[in-house]
Structure formats: structure tokens, C-alpha cells
């Protein structure tokens, strides 16, 4: 049924720490591996050994460059600038490749943590999967009832036995989280590992999504975001977790923790405790009393 259930008491979802993610793709591949044989099996791969390999993935890891937020550093010259990690003045030439008009950034609603100090240019790794939204249009547009949001825990699923493969839900998802398989003729998506998180055959500690279990930096966290006391909710509170594109009103359950501000303290004048030009520096230690 594509009408949304009343808000669930439980809101299961992921919290992804962009401050820690190194972009290793472990979450993406472990997701592929578990789910290839899981609830949404198979995650078909087309042209697996050929020219245009393309398969169904529920999780994809992007990489971006973030331009510096301020160019007024003291020792500004292009070389120094780069060495300081502040990016380049010419960034725009290549940086906006394909980005078109989006440079007209609206700055309202800045996250509280990201903006306190001028930030150098950064490389950002960004894993993207279904956010299990509270107002998921992917569900309400579905003509068949194949897409649904679970009343119990808010997980958004596709019942592949009902899906007609009209792809409308994928159009309705702004986050690109739905993956259609031409071979299977049905829509697929992240299941939040519904067949792991409640799975009584797994040790209790392993009842978590495959991507969370695999993540080598432990940048991914799973839990109940409706419970303010849960580990994930506390993380979100402490670290200023954000919704992606909140203005669209999908109200994602998954939260992203923005990178912490970078800390290269401004260069204070160096201390000069020893003037090497004046005396043979080594003699300073001549009478140092050391104990062995």
C-alpha cells in the first residue's frame, strides 16, 4: 500500500560520518555481497566482463572536492596556498566541471559546525544509499503498492512480486537511491538489511546492516533515530547531523555528520630560542646532565 503508514515509533536508519569516511567502497561492496543473495536478490550485473559493466548497487561512494571557504589567508600565493590545502584560485576552471549553474549557492540553513572558521579546500567522500525518508514520494507515487514504508520501523521496501517496473519511484527519489534492473524488470533498493537486523540466526552483535558491519573506519552507524537516547541520536545531536536537501520535505531518516572543521592553526611567529648563526649550536648541550 503506497499510502504512508502513520509515523512509526521506531525509525531505523543509518548515520554516516563524513569526517571519518575515507571513501574505501567497503560499504558498497559488502552491501552488494550480502544483498546479492538476500531479500532483494539478485543484484544483477550486466556486461560483467565487457565494455560497459553496470549492475545494481544499493550503496555508491562518491568523491568531491570542496572549495575553500575563504581565500584571505595571510601568506597567499598559489603555491603556498596549495601546500596549505587551501585549494587554488583557479579551482573554478576545472572544479565546476558539469556542475552547471549550481554555484549560485543559497546559504540559508548552514550547518552549525561546518562554518565557524574559514575552511581549506577538502576532498570529501560521500556514500549514498536510501535514506528511508519519513515522507518518501518514492512510495506514494508507486501505482502498484509494491513500494511501501513499514509501519513498524519505517523501513522503505519494494515488494518485487508486485512491482511492474514502471521506474516512477526512481524518478520520485531525489537521492538516486533506487536501482532498476532491466534484466529482472523490477525496482530494487536498499533494504536496510531487513534480513540481517532482525535475523535470529545471526549473533546479536551481527544484527546490523552489512555496510555498517564492514566499514573499516566505523564511519557508519545503525540504530533507532526516533529514540533520542539511542547511540545514533546522540551522535547526531553531538555532531550536528544533517538531513540531505531538507527543503524537499522528504524528511530523511538517515543522517550525515558533516566533516569537522579543519584545524591548521594560523601560523604564529616562530620562536627563536637559538640563533644558529651566532654560536655552534651543538655546544648548548655540552653540560646537559642526562641520566642513563
Amino acid at each position: 500500500m503506497t499510502a504512508l503508514p502513520p509515523p512509526s515509533k521506531k525509525k531505523l536508519g543509518l548515520v554516516i560520518d563524513l569526517d571519518t569516511c575515507v571513501g574505501c567502497h567497503a560499504c558498497a561492496v559488502s552491501c552488494k555481497e550480502w544483498n546479492a543473495g538476500g531479500f532483494a536478490a539478485p543484484l544483477t550485473d550486466e556486461q560483467p566482463y565487457g565494455k560497459a559493466p553496470a549492475g545494481v548497487w544499493f550503496n555508491r561512494v562518491h568523491s568531491y572536492e570542496l572549495a575553500a571557504t575563504d581565500f584571505t589567508t595571510p601568506a597567499f600565493d598559489p603555491g603556498a596556498h596549495d601546500a596549505l590545502g587551501l585549494g587554488s584560485i583557479h579551482d573554478n576552471s576545472g572544479a565546476n566541471r558539469g556542475a552547471g549553474a549550481n554555484a549560485t549557492a543559497g546559504c540559508a540553513g548552514a550547518s552549525p559546525l561546518a562554518q565557524e572558521v574559514a575552511q581549506p579546500a577538502m576532498t570529501l567522500h560521500f556514500p549514498r544509499s536510501c535514506l528511508h525518508c519519513e515522507q518518501p514520494a518514492c512510495v506514494t507515487v508507486c501505482p502498484t503498492g509494491a513500494s511501501y514504508k513499514r509501519a513498524e520501523d519505517g523501513i522503505v521496501l519494494v515488494d518485487e512480486d508486485k512491482c511492474i517496473g514502471c521506474k516512477l519511484c526512481s524518478w520520485a527519489c531525489p537521492y538516486g537511491a533506487r536501482e532498476y534492473s532491466h534484466v529482472e524488470g523490477v525496482m530494487k533498493k536498499c533494504t536496510l538489511c531487513i534480513d540481517r537486523i532482525y535475523n535470529e540466526h545471526l549473533d546479536e552483535a551481527e544484527r546490523q546492516p552489512a555496510c555498517v558491519q564492514a566499514c573499516p573506519t566505523r564511519a557508519r552507524h545503525f540504530g533507532d533515530l526516533a529514540d533520542p537516547e539511542s547511540k545514533v541520536s546522540r551522535l547526531v545531536a553531538e555532531r550536528g547531523g544533517v538531513d540531505l536537501m531538507p527543503e524537499l520535505g522528504y524528511r530523511p531518516t538517515n543522517q550525515y555528520l558533516p566533516p569537522r572543521p579543519r584545524r591548521a592553526e594560523a601560523a604564529a611567529p616562530p620562536q627563536e630560542p637559538l640563533d644558529t648563526a651566532q654560536l655552534p649550536g651543538v655546544l648548548r648541550w655540552l653540560d646537559r646532565v642526562l641520566s642513563r
Binding site: G37, G38, P42, T44, D45, E46, Q47, P48, Y49
Partner: peptide, 13 residues
Amino acid sequence: ADNAPLRYGAAFR
């Protein structure tokens, strides 16, 4: 290699 679509896991389903 056989370049037909790979449906690994279909049998598990």
C-alpha cells in the same frame, strides 16, 4: 568470459 548478465544469488532467493 561469458558476458551475459550475472545473477549471482538468484538461486539463494
